[in-house]
Amino acid sequence: MDPEFFEAAAMPLFDQLYNFAHWLTGNRSDAEDLVQETYAKALKGFRSFQEGTNLRAWMYRILRNSFLTSRTGLGAHNVSPLDDEMDITALAAHSLTPEFLVLQQEGKQTVRDALACLPLNYREVILLCEIEEMQYKEIAEVLGVPIGTVMSRLARARKMLRELLTAKPTEKVSKWTVIKTPSH
């Protein structure tokens, strides 16, 4: 497409892309860098953008891929389990991160805090679904995975959130302490 129309086409997505970037990176400065990089890359590649395909999904995909290759993204990526065949019931142990335990002990759990504890590939799928209100088809396009994978990741993400939000702090800590101990 003609770069002349890039601004008109891409700027309406600015707020939501920023929101998503902030959720992914967790802070304003990284989010701004990410969005800026996304727009620069998108402008560069706009000629190759296929007219009639989903511009929003395309932009989100650029943003998400930029994030994965960024330092913050690499860090976040490394701690996330990538096995989509993993048993849902075993997920609680995987979401166990030190900062999450701290949050649990403080007993101030909210959806936002819980989200921050999710591994990246679960966090991004639930953000796209619940915060960006995308359809599965569009999420699949952004993430570059089949719809079936989107559905299973979403189910796991929700299951993890549920665990995080429902358990009483004391229960949770003791339960996870038990789970964690054998791994030491």
Binding site: N19, W23, R28, A31, E32, V35, T110, I131
Partner: peptide, 12 residues
């Protein structure tokens, strides 16, 4: 719960 997440992050 997501509805209670609060305001979206807005760019300056």
């Amino acid at each position: 719960g997501f509805r209670a997440v609060g305001p979206r992050f807005a760019p300056s």
